[in-house]
Design a protein around this nucleic acid. Structure first.
Lengths: 123, 123
DNA sequence: CCTTGCCTTGACGCCGGTGTCAAGCCGTAC
DNA sequence: GTACGGCTTGACACCGGCGTCAAGGCAAGG
């Protein structure tokens, strides 16, 4: 499979696939051409990457998940390394959720206060 | 008040104050020196900016709040323009909270699933 | 032969708020 | 005189995941 095809199948771009490869996530062989040749399994890898990215993971965090998939597991998150990252990310997300909730309340308070208060016009 | 003093009082840096000025948020007069001379009121302005930045606002969003303060209001969020931004931001935050919550659940599910599943070692 | 369309590597742009370095002016203290 | 500390403007560096342009190779089809 060539890079354009894989990109199409994975719903992304060749540029992106090269980027992933450059960061050690996706693997490709080479044609006599010099063209990248992708194994069928890489499609799953790319999907895994995209899903995790969408969940707020960074490429570095994703590496263990890819390794896990390559090791023949049915999912990338079942290996110890993945689990460790998973736990860390969950903690981060929880933390962030907490902060965001506080912010939300502050903003709500300000809004309510504004709706009750008179104001001079700005400028 | 000179830039270093204001920076100190506001808990930030001269660089940052110049940046705010460059973006039309903070105002400064000039000495014969060419040195920036700050009015006392600017301290409140800078505080307002910092607070809003910490809540996830961008500098552009903050502008109406500053205008509101300058208009003599006791708080930056009581003017119509500020309220509009406030509503928009609240909506953004709510939306983001929703997404983050979904992500959190996905991650929890994956973690639980991982804890039940056997796995081959990665690599 | 020329076009078209795939591929290659390399490199800069973006976003946003700041750190940081450069080179130089100003005033005060020694 | 000179050293020092505060100020000035200008400009590059950072982070991360790409978009996008440049310049070129390779294969197929007219």
């Amino acid at each position: 499979m060539l890079i354009g095809e894989l990109a199409e199948l994975a719903g992304t771009s060749p540029r992106t696939l090269r980027y992933y490869e450059e960061h050690g996530l996706v693997r490709a062989g080479r044609d006599a051409n010099g063209y990248r040749q992708y194994d069928d399994g890489e499609l799953r890898v790319v999907h895994e990457i995209r899903t995790l990215l969408a969940s707020g993971f960074g490429l570095d965090d994703i590496r263990p998940f890819v390794a896990c998939l390559r090791a023949g597991n049915s999912a990338g998150h079942v290996c110890p390394d993945s689990v460790a990252v998973l736990r860390r990310k969950i903690a981060e997300v929880d933390d962030y959720l907490g902060q965001l909730t506080e912010v939300r309340e502050r903003l709500h308070d300000q809004l309510n206060q504004a709706l009750e208060s008179p104001c001079r016009r700005a400028r």
